Amino acid sequence: MSLPKPMMRGMLGKRLRFHLPIAFAVSLLSAVALKYTVTEPRKQAYAEFYKTYDAAKDFNAMKEAGVFESVQPSGE
């Protein structure tokens, strides 16, 4: 009793017709999931931060702390 020969002709095309749509769907699903779980919350967090951000106030605080070497604190 011997094993039957495997069907090799057309095997690549048959496997691609099955796996290609699945791969496309999984990649599309993961791209959408990344957009709504990472990108949108990050954009919202940046928008919330910059609503109340005052660059001049932040600069003055860093200047007073001595962060910048080329800018002298106003107290000196």
Rank of each mutant, 00 (worst) to 15 (best):
D54Y: 00
T37I: 13
G75T: 15
Y53T: 05
A45D: 05
F59I: 12
V38I: 15
P21K: 11
M1P: 07
V32I: 11
F49G: 01
A23F: 05
E69I: 03
A23E: 00
L12T: 09
D54Q: 03
M62N: 10
K57E: 08
A45N: 06
M62G: 01
A25I: 09
G75A: 14
E40G: 02
T37N: 08
R17A: 14
R15Y: 04
L20W: 13
A55I: 02
V71L: 10
A61S: 11
S74A: 14
A23T: 08
R17I: 07
S30P: 01
L16M: 10
D58F: 03
T39Y: 09
S74R: 10
K63Q: 08
V67W: 04
S27H: 09
K57L: 07
Y36R: 09
L29P: 01
Y50H: 07
Q72F: 13
D54K: 09
P21V: 11
V67K: 14
M1W: 09
R42N: 11
A56Q: 06
S70V: 13
T37E: 02
Q44V: 12
H19C: 06
A61R: 09
Q44F: 05
A33D: 00
S2P: 13
L12V: 13
K14F: 08
E48C: 01
S70M: 09
T39D: 09
Y50I: 04
R9E: 12
A61Y: 03
A56Y: 06
M11I: 13
R42G: 12
K51W: 06
S74D: 12
E64P: 00
P41Q: 09
L20R: 13
S2N: 14
Y50N: 06
A47G: 05
F59C: 06
A47E: 10
T52C: 01
L3V: 13
F49Y: 12
G66Q: 07
S70C: 07
A33C: 01
L29D: 03
A55L: 03
P21T: 08
M7E: 15
K35T: 13
T52W: 04
E76M: 12
R17M: 13
P4I: 13
A25N: 04
V71G: 01
R17H: 07
V32L: 08
A55Y: 02
A61F: 04
K5R: 14
L12N: 03
T39P: 02
D58M: 01
M1L: 14
M62Y: 11
Y36K: 10
L20P: 02
P73K: 14
K5E: 12
T37G: 04
E64Y: 00
